[in-house]
Amino acid sequence: MLVRAAFALLALLASTSIARAQSGEITVMAYAGIFQDKYTEAVIKPFMAKFPAVKVNYFSSGNSAQMLGTLRTQRSSPQVDVAILDVSVSNVGNKEGIFAKLDPAKVPSLKELHPMAIVPDGFGPAVTFDHWVLVYDTEKVKPAPTGLADLWDPRLKGQIGLSAMPNIQGIAATVLASKLAGEDFKTSIDGAIKRLKDLGPSVQTFDPQPDGYTLILGNTLTVASGWNARAQLYHDDSKGRLGVVFPKEGSVFQINTINHVAGSKNAEAATAFIEYALGREAQKRFTETMFYAPTNAKAEISPAAINRTAASAENMAKMIPLDWDWVTTIRDSWNNRWRREVIAGR
């Protein structure tokens, strides 16, 4: 009762900050910053050009968990129609009934999606694929690192930024370190933890703020973990100073799903937007703008762009499949081992 009442109160307060979805108007919630700029340019504006009757508002949020938090408080009266967020978080939303299932008839592009993009039970599928990369200062690190294994190079001591758990980059790093140790992360991560523990003292920061790319360009770090899409943008912005490495050990996808909020005021327009976002045209344009790999297998991406994402056949073969639903079951225990053994160095 009390929780309901508090939710309602918070929703009331929150509703003032979000334009109420009117007929012909939808609100899309997704990441802030450069993602907002690029997504507006590559997807939202063309969508509005194609459907002039629908106005799309962009509600930006810092991270996926914050988005889910906002949606939880708006349960009784959702102010958001479509949400783009990390699959580990959208899974939670699916289980809590925050997101609605999609009607395959109204979202024909579902049939064109990559198998890894499909979320069970008809919930919102992947809309972008990103992957874990190493970024480095091309002026200072020579020769260029080729993979995770190179971080143990003593010359990099104190210059490494490695996002630790519970950040999902930490999950990817654990998986890759397991591969390096020759073990199956699904049964044991002992070898990974041992290796990461040895690396611990060399790590300048386990929580690069604001992010590893900025710290490298600001001369605090020389190598860091990162996500490909943003890394590619920083690569271009720094005129190549920031180098991006697809690790030779392989990589792990970070998946953003696109979801229809249950109880959305404008279901029709929201579904139309989801279909458009998953369609070949939008997928091609966003990949070429921001280097997220397309989830629509039929999207025809320019070779220049495809080579800078995980979508090239060569990279795709090296991707390590990760069931994010399974990850939620082991996340706490992995997190504890990071904290107690890797970070605390015990």
Partner: peptide
């Protein structure tokens, strides 16, 4: 640098990350 784990940062992580 992710090394200083305190009650307040734990609340933040539990609420906004995990």
């Amino acid at each position: 640098g992710g090394r200083v784990l305190l009650l307040a940062t734990e609340i933040y992580e539990q609420a906004l990350v995990t």
